[in-house]
């Protein structure tokens, strides 16, 4: 099988001859600050990569799907681990780990979608290592937090040798495994706008606990004083849609939500997605899930927004 090599001299004789999966050699440096990390990326050059939780990158390196010449380890950068409520937006440091997203009282109050999504990412042990910045930069098409950030209209802060720049998710997220981050730029922070009387939710169907999504959908709504929907965001994972389904959102924006309108928005969402047949399910099945899950999360987001209003 690709990626299997025999053991190297560091292995003791007890396991000599056993086939193990080990990455190709690479240089390693541990960054002491974000600026140090950027300098290290510049020093090591184009073929170096940042490693955060490593739960996507290390498996890819074992399989030779990724073969960086150097890793810059940012796990010690506590300066990137925080969640703060700024009143009109929440700042989330890129090294905030998945379990911290689930446990955060600020996110539970402002954006319950993070806990919904966090609890269905991999398993508790993986969530002890995985980070929100790593998830977004990996940009796996089945990845949940990218969809969450699209739903919430989050802004990404990238820092490089020439300072910081902020990008909306539509600029940052270019598609499967591709983002706007340059080689020597580090995602340092997410900024999520707080909207009044808002609620959010995420739901995913997976084949078994811990798997990537067969399909997943998230929604966030903000209600006006008269009960109409002032703002709505919808986002999906694993069904070939990197943008928000504008036509579906337009059905509900400015309207008093009804079951019929929600169903109509969900139907339009299922038309906008472009899932493929793969080992997780057929395109038809995923399209069905996109519709059903979108219907559920819009209804739940509205219910939560009303709870926030009450």
């Amino acid at each position: 099988m690709v990626g299997h090599i025999t053991t190297k001299p560091w292995c003791s004789s007890r396991v000599e001859g056993v086939t193990v999966q080990i990455s190709a050699p690479f240089d390693y440096a541990r960054a002491t600050s974000v600026d140090d990390a950027i300098a290290l990326l510049d020093k090591f050059g184009e073929e170096s990569r940042v490693i955060a939780g490593g739960h996507s990158l290390l498996p890819m390196m074992k399989l030779r799907l990724a073969r960086p010449e150097a890793l810059v380890d940012i796990n010690e950068l506590d300066e990137l681990s925080y969640i703060t409520d700024e009143g009109d937006h929440v700042r989330i440091g890129a090294m905030t780990r998945h379990y911290q997203l689930i446990e955060s009282p600020i996110l539970a109050r402002r954006f319950p979608i993070f806990a919904d999504a966090g609890k269905v990412i991999a398993d508790p042990l993986v969530r002890n290592r995985g980070t929100i910045g790593g998830s977004l930069c990996q940009a796996d098409p089945g990845e949940d937090l990218t969809a969450v950030c699209i739903v919430l209209d989050a802004t990404v802060v990238l820092r490089g040798p020439n300072g910081e720049r902020t990008l909306g998710m539509s600029e940052f997220h270019r598609g499967p495994y591709e983002t706007a981050a340059e080689h020597n730029e580090i995602l340092v922070e997410l900024r999520v706008p707080i909207r009044p009387s808002s609620g959010s939710a995420y739901e995913k169907v997976e084949r078994r606990v811990g798997d990537y999504a067969v399909a997943a959908s998230g929604a966030a709504v903000s209600l006006a004083a008269d009960g109409t929907i002032a703002e709505i965001g919808i986002g999906l994972a694993a069904v070939g849609l990197d943008e928000r389904p504008a036509e579906a959102e337009a059905v509900l924006r400015g309207k008093t939500p009804t079951d019929e309108l929600i169903a109509s928005a969900a139907k339009l969402t299922s038309v906008a997605v472009e899932p493929i047949d793969d080992l997780r399910g057929t395109a038809d099945y995923k399209r069905h899930l996109a519709e059903e899950l979108t219907k559920r999360v819009i209804a739940l987001a509205i219910a939560r927004a009303k709870g926030a209003q009450a």
Binding site: Y28, R30, I51, G54, H55, L58, P59, L71, D73, N75, Y99, P124, L125, V126, N128, R129
Partner: peptide, 12 residues
């Protein structure tokens, strides 16, 4: 915290 040691580098 429990972690999967097959997906953590010893240097980390």
């Amino acid at each position: 915290k429990p972690v999967k040691s097959c997906t953590v580098l010893a240097v980390m």
